[in-house]
Design a protein around this nucleic acid. Sequence first.
DNA 1: ATCGACCTACCGTCCGGTAGGTTGGTGCAT
DNA 2: ATGCACCAACCTACCGGACGGTAGGTCGAT
Lengths: 200, 200
Amino acid sequence: MSAATDNLARDAAPGGSRRLILDTAARLLRSGGYHQTTLREIAEAVGIRKASLYHHFASKEEIVEAVVNDGVRFVQDAVVAALAETKGAPPRQRLEAAITAHLTALHGQRDYTTASFRVFTFGATPVPESVRAARRAYEDVWRNLIAELQAAGALPKERSPDLMRYMILGAMNGSIDWFRPGRFVTADVAREFSALILAR
Amino acid sequence: MSAATDNLARDAAPGGSRRLILDTAARLLRSGGYHQTTLREIAEAVGIRKASLYHHFASKEEIVEAVVNDGVRFVQDAVVAALAETKGAPPRQRLEAAITAHLTALHGQRDYTTASFRVFTFGATPVPESVRAARRAYEDVWRNLIAELQAAGALPKERSPDLMRYMILGAMNGSIDWFRPGRFVTADVAREFSALILAR
DNA sequence: ATCGACCTACCGTCCGGTAGGTTGGTGCAT
DNA sequence: ATGCACCAACCTACCGGACGGTAGGTCGAT
């Protein structure tokens, strides 16, 4: 390590300060939202001056957008992978795998995912197109899964698939408000959720 | 109406401007959250100067707190009333009545309830004690109802009552993100939700 | 005369963003 | 090997504007 400076990116892997900034921004956005989280705060937590952020990002908006989209992507990647791994398995097992993956990613990348759900919940600040696209893509994963489960008879065919999707995602995402790692075990929660949802 | 002024409370019922301010604040808080909603904005929408707000409230915090607590209270009153009306009815009917009441109040007082759920979701701004108390009181309503339904066998006894409560409330409250009055009918949604939750 | 309701004018503070350096490592021609 | 141009990374200093809140006055009904 060089002796004369406290610079971070200078000593880290190239491009590493970008990730460091995003990690920090995610943590602050999670607890403070868009308007309470300031660039000064982010810069101080990272250990650089505020103006230096503009070397890596063009605006506050760009930082926030990156965090929010990463949050959705983390969850989507986990669920897609879980569904690929359980290809051909019984419907019940696939649903439980998807729920487990969603909850695990949700709480494993808490800063990013919580920021994702909270930052752009307000209608006044228009949601950037990239964010809407990311969310739509993830919704499609569940749309397809629910259609598959209904076709297989694991979910009642007479129920509205839209309402079931909203319900399942709402119940899962609500867990960011009450889930505490010490108090619950993700797999247990996933099993309870599956049991309450699946037709018997 | 008096000729020389545009004053609102001067011409309205005594104390009416307080409600008008809260209605306006609720509408703005719903779409903008705490930090994006400014006193200047509220004052302008009401039709008075910003400083005049301080004649009715001591601070921004006090306005927000009133809105948020009203939001919870509206929902709680509706659910408690619905449960009183269905006293002695079959468990299934009581759950559906509670869900219907919750959803109806949630979307009937959209500005207040949405503000309630969104304004204090951030950990950095400490949630005022009065708000925490109001939320706890409402949670108790559901805690009791679920215990009753489990005892009656309408909900599976082997499931965690806490998780069921979190799940039901999460699914219902998530509807503020997707419910559109023209696209859905509250009673239909309530029936679907009940059907998906209740043991068959 | 009193007072609730509302006003104008102002305060210190913090915001996102910009202008224009400084620093130190890397590669290259000599 | 060494001088030097280059560039990513970061810096100090500043901007206009918006924020919540305060001081102190006006006005009209009772």
